[in-house]
């Protein structure tokens, strides 16, 4: 039992934090609102650091690491509301492609994985639970991993983004680059079907829950920090509003939720990396906890900022909008609680 990150993992996190502090300011996020793009100079920097290839095998140009290594980095991405799809490409798509190549599916995953490691392409992944819904990151992704629910069970399909018509869908957070691909499942698009597809889709949903949860941790941390700064600074009735218990207790409540969400997300990443039998359960607890913590941080951030927080000018909304989107992505807190309870009852 040693439930902690290694020094190396923390050093990598700190390096990424330093880079993002410079290269992903709120001005940069605002610029991405005006011109959303999957791959940017910032993405290239992350590729040079090894971040985009973190989960790609070493012989394909990556670092061959796991979710435990990735989660602190995705948390950093959340902390700055990184516009590029780090969680989706590195935490969800790449591990799925690795699984498929290891499973001998005959899928040509090598060019995709080397491309991800090099920062040359991003991959959008559809949530199988919401067929037909807009896919995050699909607008501008080089590859799309999609799911169809055929008569013989689900199939997992890959589409070349440049050869697919993707109709953009407008999100409250434009950096989500939502899109609805026009496609028809065919033998050419099919990667795997049947049991193999079912298993791949299930573990992908679990990884997505944990990765998205990690991003929500970072978002919650920033929303609380921005709001605590504001509460120390803003004066009413002749003193800082942060000295009033009504304000303190709002922020403390959000902080307690965040404190307890962190180990839950980290533990779920470990459970997935080490293929624990209860990993799906851990993933659901992680997403539910992280969603609740971030939604509460968002509520408190807006309330404590008051009217200024409701403006376009104040940076808070950049974090609120990502939070609201990610709280629902890959299953809401309620979805995951229902799934958890089903799992607990099935074990009885």
């Amino acid at each position: 039992m040693h439930f902690a990150f290694t020094d190396q993992q923390l050093e990598f996190r700190d390096a990424v934090r330093q880079v993002l502090a410079k290269e992903c300011t709120t001005d940069d996020v605002r610029a991405a609102y005006d011109a959303p793009a999957a791959r940017t100079a910032r993405w290239a920097t992350l590729a040079e650091l090894g971040v985009t290839g973190l989960t790609v095998p070493e012989d394909l140009g990556g670092l061959g690491l796991g979710l435990v290594d990735l989660v602190p980095l995705v948390e950093e991405a959340g902390r700055v509301a990184l516009p590029e799809p780090l969680g989706t490409t590195v935490g969800i798509a790449a591990p799925l492609l690795v699984d498929l190549s290891a499973g001998g599916s005959g899928v040509p995953t090598t060019p995709l994985l080397t491309g991800i490691a090099a920062g040359a392409l991003t991959v959008a992944v559809a949530d199988a639970r919401w067929p037909g819904a807009p896919v995050a990151g699909a607008d501008g992704a080089e590859f799309l991993l999609l799911v169809d629910d055929g008569p013989d069970g689900p199939g997992l399909h890959a589409l070349d983004g440049s050869a697919t018509t993707v109709t953009p869908a407008s999100s409250l957070d434009p950096t989500r680059r939502l899109g609805i691909p026009e496609w028809a499942p065919s033998a050419d698009t099919l990667l795997v079907a049947g049991e193999a597809a079912r298993a791949a889709i299930a573990v992908t949903a679990d990884r997505a829950a944990v990765t998205t949860g990690a991003e929500l941790l970072g978002l919650a941390d920033t929303m609380i920090a921005l709001t605590a700064d504001y509460a120390r600074d803003r004066q009413q009735f002749g003193k800082a509003i942060g000295s009033f218990q009504a304000v303190k207790h709002l922020l403390a409540g959000a902080q307690v939720l965040l404190e307890f969400a962190r180990p839950v997300v980290y533990g779920a990443a470990w459970a997935l990396d080490t293929r624990q039998a209860d990993a799906p359960r851990a993933a659901s607890v992680a997403k539910a906890y992280a969603s609740d913590a971030a939604l509460e941080a968002a509520r408190v951030a807006l309330q404590v900022h008051g009217a200024i927080g409701y403006t376009w000018e104040c940076d808070v909304h950049l974090f609120l909008k990502r939070t609201w989107a990610l709280a629902e992505a890959w299953g809401s807190a309620g979805d995951h609680r229902a799934r958890l309870l089903d799992s607990l009852l099935a074990g009885r």
């Binding site: 039992m1 040693h2 439930f3 902690a4 404190e259 307890f260 969400a261 962190r262 180990p263 839950v264 980290y266 533990g267 607890v285 539910a288 906890y289 309620g334 609680r337 229902a338 958890l340 309870l341 607990l344």
Partner: peptide
């Protein structure tokens, strides 16, 4: 009561993990 039951179970699980996280920090 389904949601309340799942929430309560999750809260206990989060407490377990937080304790292991804290215990590791103390041991380090």
């Amino acid at each position: 009561s389904a949601d309340a039951v799942a929430r309560a179970w999750m809260d206990a699980e989060a407490y377990r993990l937080n304790t292991l996280w804290t215990a590791t920090r103390v041991l380090d």
